[in-house]
Design a binder for these strands. Structure first.
Length: 203
DNA sequence: CTCATGATTCGCT
DNA sequence: GCGAATCATGAGA
């Protein structure tokens, strides 16, 4: 597994989002190594994107992470309940990011199942299996990702992303979800997912 | 300090 | 399809 370097992340969120599909997210936590494949993402383009936390370069305590160099983890709390994980892109003081919306879990399936439903993987219903990690709040709950890793460097050893297998897949472009407040930006086709994946949040 | 709200999910209809 | 859960955040007084 080859860890992606800083240069990989230093591009626009639109470019990075598509490049992240099929890559492997790795999280080291509680002496476990969680590996999952990224299958659904959304691009948030910062300064000019009305849906972005950093629209007009809005710089606050929360969004400070987005202004770091590309290749950091931006984790924030949404609706008072769920954590969302983003990959900071662009570059230093270019606050763009990619929201991870869906991953396919590869290992530690029992731990993930316990985190989501309080029981082992082989006890899950088909519906529960499908709902393990097919959403931004679901995947963070499954992997145990919270704001305590906000700002972590993705070129470090706690959380990082690796090159995927050489495989062919079709990328679907669609409207981003949950941003109806964003006026014309709500219709931009800035959500991308792997067509045949079982872990896409919505079709 | 107050207050409105959200890059969601879940359960119910 | 709809509404509730639940609280940090950001804006404004």
């Amino acid at each position: 597994m080859h860890k992606l370097n800083r240069k990989f992340y230093r591009k626009s969120a639109l470019d990075l989002s598509k490049d992240l599909l099929g890559k492997y997210l790795v999280l080291n936590k509680n002496n476990k190594k969680f590996i999952s494949k990224i299958v659904e993402v959304e691009a948030y383009m910062g300064e000019d994107d009305k849906a972005s936390h950093t629209y007009k370069n809005r710089r606050t305590k929360r969004t400070e992470t987005m202004f770091k160099d590309a290749g950091h983890a931006y984790v924030y709390l949404i609706y008072g309940i769920y954590n969302c994980l983003n990959v900071v892109s662009g570059g230093k003081n270019i606050p763009q990011g990619v929201l991870l919306r869906g991953v396919q879990p590869i290992n530690e399936l029992d731990t993930i199942s316990l985190n989501r439903f309080g029981k082992m993987y082989n006890e899950l219903t088909k519906k529960q299996i499908k709902n393990l990690t097919n959403g931004p709040g679901k995947l963070t709950q499954a992997l145990g990702i919270t704001r305590d890793i906000n700002g972590y460097d993705l070129t470090g050893d706690v959380i990082y992303i690796c090159e995927g297998e050489k495989e062919q897949f079709e990328i679907i472009e669609s409207k981003r979800i949950g941003i109806n407040y964003a006026e014309e930006a709500k219709d931009f086709l800035w959500r991308f997912y792997i067509d045949d994946s079982d872990y896409v949040s919505r079709r």
